[in-house]
């Protein structure tokens, strides 16, 4: 479960004040809003990349507001994928496990499992410069899921893709969600994505987060 309680964030002239909402465990939440409304800021606060002025962020009832981002256990897929240009796809999937000093066998099994889940087995030895937009996003998703995070954060992951690839990725995200049951916060401005994927939809408007679709 993700909870934000009376969260305040100030960045220069931009300010988000008194943001409160919660996402139940295992739910796929979509946060919508216009460009510049602060949806990415909320996501970055959850990951730990942005300092919070006041308020609390809870993940599975543990207060992570001041916790180092490396210790939060949040998988992060940025808008452009932000792949590591010098690493192969295999190394991307193994990265978080190598950091956690997992054994070679565990790493190999997990890499094979993720590659098969995301349909990127044939790309394992390639490097990011040769990948298409859709392939790069699959790798970024695999990298974020590799260490079985408590929470997955997706920052407009489909915005740079063409319609056909976006539909394929939507199906993949739906499939991934059923397989992993990870609590997900997906930020987008596209209502179709919300319609297709979301259990619950939140809209950020005038500095307030409103719940527009409740979990069934």
């Amino acid at each position: 479960m993700i909870s934000m309680e009376k969260l305040c964030v100030k960045t220069g002239a931009f300010c988000l004040d008194n943001i409160s909402f919660s996402i139940p465990t295992g739910a796929y939440a979509v946060l919508m809003g216009r460009t510049g409304s602060g949806k990415t800021t909320i996501l970055e606060c959850l990951i730990g990349l942005r300092k919070v002025s006041s308020g609390k962020i809870l993940i599975n009832d543990a207060d992570v507001t001041m916790l180092n981002p490396a210790l939060r256990g949040v998988g992060y897929v940025p808008q452009d994928g932000a792949l590591f240009s010098q690493m192969s796809v295999r190394d991307h999937l193994a990265f978080a496990l190598l950091i956690r000093r997992a054994s070679k066998k565990i790493i190999k099994d997990r890499v094979d499992e993720l590659a098969s889940l995301l349909g990127i087995t044939h790309l394992l030895d390639r490097t990011p410069p040769g990948l298409s937009g859709g392939e790069a996003q699959r790798v970024a998703l695999g990298r974020a899921l590799s260490f079985r995070p408590k929470v997955l954060c997706l920052d407009e992951p489909l915005s740079a893709l063409d319609r056909e690839t976006r539909e394929q990725m939507c199906e993949l995200l739906h499939h991934m969600r059923q397989q992993t049951k990870v609590t997900t916060l997906h930020v987008t401005h596209n209502p179709e994505e919300a319609e297709t994927l979301a259990d619950c939809v939140y809209r950020i408007e005038g500095g307030q987060v409103l719940e527009v679709k409740q979990i069934q």
Binding site: L49, A82, I99, R143, F147
Partner: peptide, 25 residues
């Protein structure tokens, strides 16, 4: 800097993110 931020979110310390991601780039 986004690459480094992703590495940190994946569990890296600053030095690991620097050595494994930033320096090779």
């Amino acid at each position: 800097p986004r690459c480094e931020q992703v590495a940190i979110a994946l569990g890296s310390s600053r030095s690991q993110a620097f050595g494994w991601v930033v320096l090779p780039e």
